[in-house]
Design a protein around this nucleic acid. Sequence first.
DNA 1: CGCGTTTGACCGGCGC
DNA 2: GCGCCGGTCAAACGCG
Length: 502
Amino acid sequence: MDGTREHDQTVIINSLDDQVFTVDHGVKRVINEMDFFSDKNFSKDASSTSGFKKESKFVDGVEQELHLNISTSLNLLTKNTTANNKSTVDDNASPGISNEFVALKSQLDRVYTENERLRAMLKQTNSKYYSLQMQITSLLQHQHNLKGESTGDQKIIDAVAQEEKQRFLVPRQYMDLGQHAIDDKDRTSHSDSVLLKGRNQNGSSSQQCIEEKSMANELQKNSHTKIEREKSPAEKNSQQWIPNKVPKFHSSQDLSQAAEATMKKARVSVRARSEAPMISDGCQWRKYGQKMAKGNPFPRAYYRCTMAVGCPVRKQVQRCVGDRSVLITTYEGNHNHPLPPAAMAMASTTSAAASMLLSGPMPSADGFMNPNGLARTILPYSANLASISASAPFPTVTLDLTNTPNLSQLQILQGQFTQDFGPGPQATAHSLYNHSRFLPRAFDASFPGTAAVASDPNFTAALAEALSSIIANLNPNIGIDSKNSPKNSSESNNGNINFAGK
DNA sequence: CGCGTTTGACCGGCGC
DNA sequence: GCGCCGGTCAAACGCG
């Protein structure tokens, strides 16, 4: 019965303190903080995850190596192995228990198969995002190099300007929207409804959302107040951090600059349940300030990215006044440096969401982008997950990861897509279909342990990655300029098909 | 001693 | 013009 002892080791996620335990014959041991974005979790080298190495031995005849994240899902899906925090098979099991063991084994086999499928999905998604992020980074760096090195070459400048102009054609519309939003408070309040409806089902939903919107608006408002003194020489040279003022633009060149500035000022707010002071997103942050925000008893912490000198990315972390367990993390700016795979997920999420916000092809009859329509169209299946606020000069997309939409909600998505987008490219529609197959599976509340996973901040961050994947697929303008990298763009689509096919 | 955090001061924008 | 507010700075402090 030695083989059955392997079943005694299970992984339990404590959704409250984000710690992962192994249960070895009833002895609970804390391994470490689980981080869906850490290298080790996505690494093929399972041995690097020292704490989970023992998970590798599992069931006879089944591949032994399991990744942390998959192991987590596995055990969460197998309530029989986790529900009681103890082994379901005794070392001295009688023959009468053998039937139960066989049943458990078959169940584990099924679960393992399911996890294999999920693992393939995760790997596919992760690799796709890594690829996309690297393309974005290289493109941005290439553009900056062109700008910086060829000040005397008017042709290159013009080419870059032209490229920028095309790239930010829609953000120009957004600038109109922003001004429009400022000038017309009625419309502003109307757009606010995007945030206020269709959210949490609990009683604090409105308060939470209002608080969140307030924070986002505060960010946006105060983004104007960036002052020259904060810029270090390195930052000035790198052009990565420009004052958040909204200058008046008269020429097309100014407009492109404005669009670029707007692009950098797009904000992504992530709501996730976490008892930890900060969600783990794989980046290195340094705290540079803390303030008590009006109307919120919890302090707001200010962090800046320290992975590279002069990286303009900043984030604010604050607890929701309505629900203390909800951590609101607001990201601003784009990284000016390559990111480790561990940080790629959240960075891709925020980047994709910001890109979606700023480059979404959302023309409307009146010439303005309707933020409601934007949210409804780009995020047709995630009405409870993402929302867009355009009530301030700088847009904010909010990823609400505190909820787990039910299956019925997500099953509507496909229909909504066809309705909103009409018959689109086959690859895109296919990828949506695939995602819609993936998401309900991930969110299905009927799955044992899903709620616990969903409440884990790291899981929610991983969920954000999946969400951004969908967002990126729905919006072909996101992430990379297709004309610059048609091959990769094509590969991306193919990847989606493969993503679903497995 | 170096690095990160804390915290009071300072700044500019905005509303009245 | 004044006060409020959010964001940032930078000196002081703590920790390894």
